[in-house]
Design a protein around this nucleic acid. Structure first.
Lengths: 203, 203
DNA sequence: TCCAAAAATGTAGTGACTACAACAATGGAA
DNA sequence: TTCCATTGTTGTAGTCACTACATTTTTGGA
């Protein structure tokens, strides 16, 4: 889709605001930064911020798709595949992306910022809820047992929550490659255990 | 514990505010009622409302203890009991209380009010989160496998969420005793199925 | 009857967010 | 190039939840 100069400038403004906001939030914490400060730092009017982002939290959670991953994975998987297998593979892939070189520190910084802010934690719960809804819809497309599908989605969300806590607890901020490998192995062990519980339960 | 007249009057004020607020919220919806209106209706200053309740949502969720039930049940159960059995029995008991004569309509009204309000839904998610934390603590007291305990708590919360949706979907607002019995049977069937999944998975 | 603690009130302010009107930049048509 | 309609941006004014704090009222006890 061709974007005219007008639309390009709009996206540019939006991106500038989002970048400035993210920097400020990571530096000083979400709750300690006001929208007015973000606007001032981005050199736009407060109204302009709200023209692009419906709520302050959207300045932080500005990467769409995170929460759509599991539903997409289910839709793209061949019909005979077991949903739990698909979801485990999807989760494993996402986790490995996060642990890729250089990404880990950034990731932990993001999560720590969330954990420090009641507002961001609330938004994360909302996102997880919406993930459950979209995942349930995707599952409903391939199997008629709605209660079971709903349960699978809820169990996946529960697994994700537990494993993210585990990731934060197990992985050091910075580590030698050897330490990191060892921590990653322990984490993947936990992933396997948790998904084994789901698989056994749903068998 | 003896309460002097002073403390009694304080609790009386608190209760009056809570009652008035609940009535208004159920009548007109949580978001449509301002704290100032609640204060006016209860004939107190706005400040007085906030002296008793830290946030507007606390005016609605004013019954403490319902979210502490599972943790208490675990602590009171004899050590050899399977946690999932204890939690299922606890959940079944709570559910039957809700379905007791006359309680059903009230309960559905409460849930509908929550579902109509983004703020109340957010608070419900927060409550569920805190339930998971306290339940994990209770489980940690009787078993050293923290990851497993954390997982049990998360799975219980997932089950609770799915089953509450089910309850709202399956139970009519008002029904003849026969219809209600039939609906209750279907609901308890769903409860058994969901907890069977947890039990099998965690076996 | 008087005093000190505690409950209730009033005032002033902050910060997210909305409604709305005015303004400015832009793309296209004449 | 000029003009106009669209659209992104801005400024103003206001609402609402919530906080800080000083003041007043109530109350239990000496």
């Amino acid at each position: 889709m061709e974007l005219g100069r007008r639309e390009r400038k709009k996206q540019q403004t939006r991106q500038a605001i989002s970048d400035v906001a993210t920097t400020l939030f990571l530096e000083r914490g979400f709750d300690a930064v006001t929208v007015a400060e973000v606007a001032r730092a981005a050199d736009v009017a407060v109204q302009t911020v709200f023209n692009h982002f419906p709520a302050k939290e959207d300045l932080f959670f500005d990467e769409p798709g995170w929460w759509a991953g599991p539903a997409r994975a289910i839709r793209e998987a061949p019909p005979p595949a077991d949903p739990v297998d698909v979801l485990e593979a999807q989760y494993l892939k996402e986790t490995r992306d996060r642990l890729a070189v250089g990404h880990l520190a950034t990731w932990k910084q993001f999560v720590r910022t969330i954990d420090d802010s009641p507002a961001l934690k609330a938004r994360r719960r909302l996102n997880a809820d919406q993930l459950e809804v979209t995942l349930t819809e995707a599952l409903d497309e391939r199997s008629p047992d709605h209660l079971r599908n709903r349960l699978i989605a809820a169990l996946y969300a529960a697994a994700q929550k537990v494993l993210e806590e585990r990731l934060m607890a197990v992985l050091p901020d910075e580590a030698s490659p050897a330490e990191l490998d060892e921590a990653q192995a322990r984490l993947e062990q936990a992933i396997a255990e948790v998904f084994a519980v789901l698989r056994r339960g749903l068998a």
